[in-house]
């Protein structure tokens, strides 16, 4: 974008300044700005970690065109809460084990965090977590959605998740017969 030399230098200076800051500014698809702790962002999101390491963080707000402001606010909120929820000594070296550890049940605050979300906000947050490579947030939000699915009939699932039934009556009957065991009791 900026081709002339003077601006290039200014860019350099800005990057240096950016490296010294302990927060990063993220910009949602609708242009709202959010500040998040650099440490938490780098630890919780593989994508942001890569951007920070690669110096592609923009001081004036790193564009995240795929994420709306409500979802981004939740992401930032989650990062900030997460940073507080872990003793600072554990912060430094946890990024590697974080991504490979088996799924751990959501903690109380994580449960509350997703429980308060509306249906739409939850789904936006799943997508944002997926886009940003936030393993733990993805786990927690997926867990919440799977909880919502448990105990529901296919009809109810379709209704809740707004999915069109593209089976013919006969096709559905055939599958249901095959899966009769899955429809016993409850």
């Amino acid at each position: 974008m900026e081709v002339d030399k003077g601006k290039g230098e200014a860019e350099e200076t800005r990057k240096v300044a950016e490296a010294d800051r302990d927060t990063v500014t993220l910009k949602s698809s609708d242009g709202k700005l959010f500040e998040v702790s650099k440490e938490a962002a780098a630890r919780l999101s593989t994508v942001l970690a890569g951007m920070i390491a690669g110096g592609s963080i923009d001081d004036n707000g790193t564009d995240l065109k795929q994420i709306g402001s409500e979802a981004l606010e939740n992401v930032v909120d989650y990062c900030n809460k997460h940073a507080n929820s872990i003793p600072s000594a554990a912060l430094i070296s946890s990024s590697i084990s974080f991504n490979t550890a088996p799924f751990k049940e959501p903690e109380e605050w994580e449960r509350k965090f997703v429980d308060r979300l509306s249906h739409d906000a939850l789904f936006d947050l799943v997508e944002a977590a997926n886009f940003l490579g936030m393993e733990r947030l993805l786990d927690v939000t997926c867990h919440k959605i799977s909880e919502m699915m448990k105990g529901k009939s296919p009809d109810q699932i379709r209704e809740v998740f707004n999915i069109k039934n593209d089976y013919t009556k006969e096709e559905l009957e055939e599958i249901r017969q095959e899966l009769a065991w899955a429809f016993y009791d409850d």
């Binding site: 699915m149 448990k150 105990g151 529901k152 009939s153 296919p154 699932i157 379709r158 998740f161 999915i163 069109k164 039934n165 593209d166 089976y167 559905l172 599958i175 249901r176 899966l179 899955a182 429809f183």
Partner: peptide, 9 residues
């Protein structure tokens, strides 16, 4: 529930 979900779409 996983198998049941086959009936969704």
């Amino acid at each position: 529930f996983l198998y049941r979900s086959k009936c969704v779409s």
